[in-house]
Design a binder for these strands. Sequence first.
DNA 1: CTCTTATTTCGATACTATTAGAAATACCGT
DNA 2: ACGGTATTTCTAATAGTATCGAAATAAGAG
Lengths: 106, 106
Amino acid sequence: MKLDDAAAHLEALGNPTRLKIFRALVRAGDNGLSVGKLQTRLDIAASTLSHHLKTLLVVGLITQERQSTTLICRASYDLMRGLVDFLVDECCVESTGTLCVTKSAC
Amino acid sequence: MKLDDAAAHLEALGNPTRLKIFRALVRAGDNGLSVGKLQTRLDIAASTLSHHLKTLLVVGLITQERQSTTLICRASYDLMRGLVDFLVDECCVESTGTLCVTKSAC
DNA sequence: CTCTTATTTCGATACTATTAGAAATACCGT
DNA sequence: ACGGTATTTCTAATAGTATCGAAATAAGAG
């Protein structure tokens, strides 16, 4: 993953409202949640929700699937995993210490 | 970790310049890097760097230690690990599918 | 075709972030 | 104390973001 992409993903998750949305979708798993259900659960204005969903969508953190009138949203697990990997990647490679003998230590 | 804290950390990392800074420190490991060394490496204005370092500092993503005139910065590995854990935490708990039988699958 | 439900776009407002040059401060070595 | 190096604060211009109500669009149901 490129740094600018990672930054874009982190920025997208860096807003409390969007993080709430994303986590609700992460919790929901492969069932996903409709926009309407998200709105009811999180109790935010529909326009605000739509705005944030678009932000998450354009960076790829979520996907959407139409089921007639309702729109099902799902977290993109691949991208989330890639982001987590990016954060710990190259950890301590310049260190002379023993902090990162194994990657799990970071 | 509370959601608002996690969002603050993600937001701090969500700026390309700050992410560059943070990654340089993550690479550096427990040796850390001085502000001046960071400035030379990343080639950004000293005032801009100082500003971003403060942002990372107040959310706790980095720590600083004075060594006479120079200021050594280090990534806070604990916080980074906490953030990564937060992201995958509660993954798929509401799912009826088989996506997350083990946590590693997320 | 019209009604209803679901979601998005528009428009406006208020707030916050990014950047960097210039000036200020901190601290050590001599 | 002086000079030099390291870092921060001040100031300001510019641009971007968050929010929500109102209106608009989309799509199935009757």
